[in-house]
Computed example of a mutant assay.
Amino acid sequence: MDRYIDLKLRPDPEFPQTLLMNALLTKLHRALHDLRRNDIGISFPGLSQNARNLGEHLRLHGNDQALSRLSSLDWLLGMRDHVDVSETLIVPEGVKHRTISRVQVDSSPERARRRLIKRHGISEEEARERIPDNAGKRCDLPFATLRSNGGGQVFRLFVRLGPLLEEPHQGTFSGYGLSGTATVPWF
């Protein structure tokens, strides 16, 4: 994790920043999946613990080879008018590190009902009685709204910032560039 690329969303009167960040993360996920990479992490510089959205700045972290391979895909096709992309830069010395991880929240009562019907063979009416519409959990973490590649369902990708650490921790990253164990430089 000695290199990084900054992607900053440009202001756009037609599209809100959250929509553009959602699209950017969707494109990144497809690219990481196509490359079968687990050595590229992401961060959101300027994101605070109490933010509700991920902001307008995405940073990709990795080694020179991993980031060069990603850049060679032209994965930003269709987003070039909406984002400023830096060259691959060297991580400054003396920075802190942190995990940026996904938090899965079962916030959909409808999904819980479908699961209950499938597992226990009960009727939809009975499932609705057991799990009312107001049964969903609330999460105050920042998130992006994405669409699943497999089933096409819309879901929220909640992101948690881990504590600041003096030393990096090695590990692998998900297809979204997130990890509960591997750290990225935080600056």
Rank of each mutant, 00 (worst) to 15 (best):
74 D>V: 00
47 L>W: 05
93 E>G: 07
60 L>M: 04
90 I>L: 13
139 C>V: 03
106 D>S: 12
150 G>L: 09
12 D>R: 07
102 R>V: 06
123 S>I: 05
34 D>I: 10
86 S>Q: 06
3 R>C: 14
24 L>M: 09
88 T>H: 00
7 L>D: 09
96 K>C: 13
128 R>K: 14
49 Q>T: 07
45 P>D: 09
14 E>C: 10
135 A>S: 15
79 M>F: 09
120 H>F: 11
39 D>S: 11
187 F>E: 13
185 P>Y: 02
112 A>T: 09
163 P>V: 09
152 G>T: 02
65 Q>V: 09
15 F>H: 15
21 M>F: 01
131 I>E: 02
60 L>S: 06
175 G>T: 12
76 L>G: 08
46 G>N: 02
115 R>W: 02
57 H>N: 03
113 R>K: 11
180 G>N: 15
53 N>W: 04
93 E>T: 06
2 D>V: 04
50 N>F: 04
89 L>A: 12
90 I>Y: 00
62 G>R: 03
157 L>R: 03
85 V>W: 00
174 S>E: 07
27 K>A: 15
155 F>Y: 15
64 D>G: 06
109 P>N: 07
16 P>C: 13
155 F>W: 09
187 F>S: 14
109 P>W: 01
76 L>C: 06
145 T>P: 01
181 T>D: 13
15 F>S: 14
141 L>A: 06
126 E>N: 05
33 H>Y: 13
158 F>N: 12
155 F>V: 07
143 F>R: 10
184 V>G: 08
169 H>Q: 13
166 E>L: 12
58 L>P: 09
167 E>F: 01
32 L>Y: 08
15 F>E: 14
13 P>E: 07
54 L>Q: 01
182 A>S: 05
94 G>W: 05
9 L>V: 05
107 S>D: 15
166 E>D: 15
66 A>E: 08
173 F>H: 04
70 L>C: 09
74 D>Y: 00
186 W>Y: 12
22 N>C: 09
28 L>A: 07
131 I>H: 00
173 F>I: 03
3 R>K: 15
90 I>V: 14
81 D>I: 00
55 G>I: 03
71 S>E: 15
26 T>L: 04
168 P>F: 02
19 L>M: 07
160 R>G: 05
2 D>G: 13
146 L>C: 11
70 L>S: 07
65 Q>R: 12
56 E>G: 13
153 Q>M: 06
63 N>V: 06
104 Q>P: 06
121 G>H: 07
99 T>L: 08
46 G>T: 01
141 L>N: 03
138 R>C: 10
